[in-house]
Design a binder for these strands. Structure first.
Lengths: 132, 132
DNA sequence: CGGCGATATAGACAAATGTCAATATGTGGT
DNA sequence: ACCACATATTGACATTTGTCTATATCGCCG
């Protein structure tokens, strides 16, 4: 399964409370962790934000190595992680590979957590510049 | 500093675009990654959700080992990670340690990402239920 | 004050992770 | 068909991570 991606938060299967279990499905926990683990590296955070902040919303792989200051194979490896986590989509155009963010995995993952009111602070979300 | 925590999203220092840099502060990327890395393990996801789903919103450390099926030192280690990431707060009461979720780090981290409209599917703020 | 129960720390160890240099694969141009 | 360039894969390596057992520390209660 190299191309698992997607299916980050099963939505259902919420309360599997039990003696040896927990409040969350084991597979759900793994999916959640997979997405967050992909974001658990500074380089990948930079890459994702870099692409997201780009003018066209997508970036060529060739433009990613220089900003993070790592070798081409390393960046390729990181991008693969992001793709497999469902955080970005890869598209080959000509001999270049383009990456663009995909929102589903991230919003599903964070949504799965903040679904629990104990994990979401109520009002005007966090760092929202629109509050003014 | 072992007890860094908090300060997950510097709010400012947004666009440090540069030749060897990126769109994001190096320290900010590390902070973001720290929070997400803490969530990048299935056991810690389970622990956080377990506590968040508890009746009182807090749980004694002694009640955490059994649901995840790991040894006491291992659970203690995971909880330390969550505390250092600023995702839960620890309080000693009597001879028991109680943990409760704290929303600041998570919402700041996710907010920092979804601040970029390319990373959020909803129009305005992130995951804000007050939009209705 | 001595002991007991709860939690944290230390040490050990296998597995996973991040990185690079070297190489393979793929894609278009000549 | 060949070559040049862009990207991915492989293999190697040091570092980090998750887990355990054993031990230390902390906090009550007799």
């Amino acid at each position: 399964m190299t191309t698992a991606e997607a299916t980050p938060a099963p939505t259902a299967a919420c309360c599997t409370v039990g003696p040896g279990g927990g409040v969350v499905d084991d597979e759900a926990a793994h999916q959640l962790a997979k997405v967050f683990k992909a974001l658990g590296d500074p380089t990948r955070v930079k890459l994702l934000l870099l692409i997201a902040a780009s003018e066209s919303g997508e970036m060529c792989a060739c433009d990613l190595t220089e900003p993070v200051g790592l070798s081409q194979p390393t960046v390729s490896h990181h991008m693969k992680q992001l793709v497999e986590a469902g955080l970005v989509a890869r598209e080959q155009r000509g001999k270049w590979a383009y990456y663009r963010p995909t929102t589903a995995a991230l919003s599903a993952a964070t949504g799965f957590l903040t679904q629990d009111e104990r994990l979401s602070d109520s009002p005007a979300a966090t760092v929202n510049p629109h509050s003014i």
